[in-house]
Write a protein that binds this DNA or RNA. Sequence first.
DNA 1: CTCGCTGCAAAAAATTTGCACATTG
DNA 2: CAATGTGCAAATTTTTTGCAGCGAG
Lengths: 159, 159
Amino acid sequence: MAESFDCNLATPAQKREFEEKALGELKARGYRMTMTRLQVIRALGETHRALSPYEIHDRIVQAGGRIDVVSVYRILATLEETGLAHHVASVNGYIPCRASKAHGFQQRLVCRRCGCVTEVALPQTCLETLEGGAESLGFQVETARLELIGLCGHCVGAS
Amino acid sequence: MAESFDCNLATPAQKREFEEKALGELKARGYRMTMTRLQVIRALGETHRALSPYEIHDRIVQAGGRIDVVSVYRILATLEETGLAHHVASVNGYIPCRASKAHGFQQRLVCRRCGCVTEVALPQTCLETLEGGAESLGFQVETARLELIGLCGHCVGAS
DNA sequence: CTCGCTGCAAAAAATTTGCACATTG
DNA sequence: CAATGTGCAAATTTTTTGCAGCGAG
């Protein structure tokens, strides 16, 4: 029998780590820690899937919490600005940024089957190639949004 | 005095090329060539900026054309499916795909100042690095959405 | 106690759907 | 002529805004 694994369920440790990181970062930036923000942070942290504002709202409500969708939007904006969450275009949702200090660019591996998103640092060589290529066209790179779509390790075998 | 250059204005040749490519591809796929589609194709082809469905609609109307926004949506869906247009997430708009036959992945250089988007093929080495890295995590890459955001050659100097 | 944050109400914008009519090949 | 494609009307969904009241520090 196959090991039970849910691409969408983060481990308690991962969840806790993100929560601590987020709380610390928000405090450091002078934001207030509120129940509403904590709920969004927890909703983001407990999964590996990208969640839309409405999904986040629904999850919180279903878990017995209470929050308005408008607040979810505003909190997501704050989290993005702070680098604590990233928007994933190919699935139109937000994921928690679990990377330590965002050195260099991050690439996101998006599974088109289970929807999980994994963030990985962009290899230095690759970064140089990309920046070099752009530079040769006179383009100066500042940020990147790199998404690789395919099948994650757990879905490659399955089905 | 500076050379007059408009990042947003494609040359007549570029415009013509894309139009021909699009017409050929659509015909090859069995789609009918209609005035409505032609209008969208021309609107896309005449600029280097990513255009939203409404922008496309407005441009067509302002040029004396006639089309419903709903049709713009449907036609964009067709063009994307056909690989004739790509959605650019960082600016939320569509660009014409001018690449010949889409060998390998394309990266998009998005200027945050003038909004122009340039498509460039991803260097082979880079592609291999990315795929290799993903593979080592058990992830099998199928497609990519690579956007580099920064300043284009014309905007680096300016301002 | 003060300023930031949230909920509520509502508007605005973006996207989708159904169906009758027009148009292409 | 037979699909295919389009416009129109309308519903849905998503996102934004203003403001009064609550709550964190």
